[in-house]
């Protein structure tokens, strides 16, 4: 049989979903993890999903933190995104206000992380509501470009581009891992175990 040591490396990443209430954060997570759509209750506190991606070069394990859009208990907010490797800033293309809110979330993240510490994706959800669209694709795209974010429009309901955005995030994270490895090997370090480089925050 195959010995476990021979499989590709496994990377574990914490991914947080951020954005206004009712933009579809939980639905995105649910579509991605269960490939299904259902009317969901508003999130209270936060919930947690895992998804394993088997890619050619590595196995990626996403720990997806789904948070409440309206969090009254503010002191925990920092716990949601602490130690995150990636963040999805979700807005509703049929509600302009939610894009502004996503911009505010970006400012929050910038206070907390250096640009190379976290992969951020701007996600315009609910493309199935094309008739009620308030935010042009170009507007989201342009904002993402100036801020250096990944960008995609999705529909958790119709499953449009949901896998794609998570895949794009995985690719970007792996690209960054490789850049780190090459820096390490230039320094003369032997093959470091990269799983440890993004060590789980067990304790502070």
């Amino acid at each position: 049989g195959t010995s476990l040591e021979e499989i590709r490396p496994t990377y574990t990443y914490k991914v947080v979903l951020l954005g206004s209430t009712s933009v579809g954060k939980s639905s995105l997570a649910y579509r991605y993890v269960k490939n299904d759509f259902k009317e969901s209750l508003p999130t209270v506190g936060c919930s947690f999903f895992t998804q394993i991606l088997n890619l050619e070069v590595a196995t990626v394990k996403f720990e997806i933190w789904d948070t409440a859009g309206q969090e009254k208990y503010h002191s925990v907010c920092h716990l949601y995104y602490r130690g995150a490797s990636a963040a999805l800033l979700v807005y509703d293309i049929a509600n302009k206000e939610t894009l502004n809110r996503a911009k505010l979330w970006l400012r929050e993240l910038e206070k907390e992380f250096l640009p190379d510490e976290i992969v951020i994706a701007l996600v315009g959800n609910k493309t199935d509501l094309a008739a009620e669209r308030e935010v042009a694709t170009e507007e989201g795209q342009e904002f993402a470009r100036t801020e250096g974010l990944l960008f995609m429009e999705t529909s958790a309901k119709s499953s449009h581009q949901v896998d794609d955005i998570f895949m794009a995030i995985a690719q970007e994270l792996l690209k960054r891992e490789q850049e780190k490895t090459s820096v390490l090997s230039q320094r003369g370090g032997s093959t470091a175990d990269l799983r440890e480089s993004r060590a789980r925050t067990r304790c502070c």
Binding site: V44, G45, C46, V76, L79, R202, C203, C204
Partner: peptide, 23 residues
């Protein structure tokens, strides 16, 4: 305690308290 501050925040039970176990 062994998990430090993050553990003591007890994220797992916030919803229990906020919605009084409804979910």
């Amino acid at each position: 305690c062994s998990l430090g501050e993050d553990g003591l925040q007890m994220l797992f039970c916030h919803r229990w308290i906020l919605l009084c176990f409804k979910r």
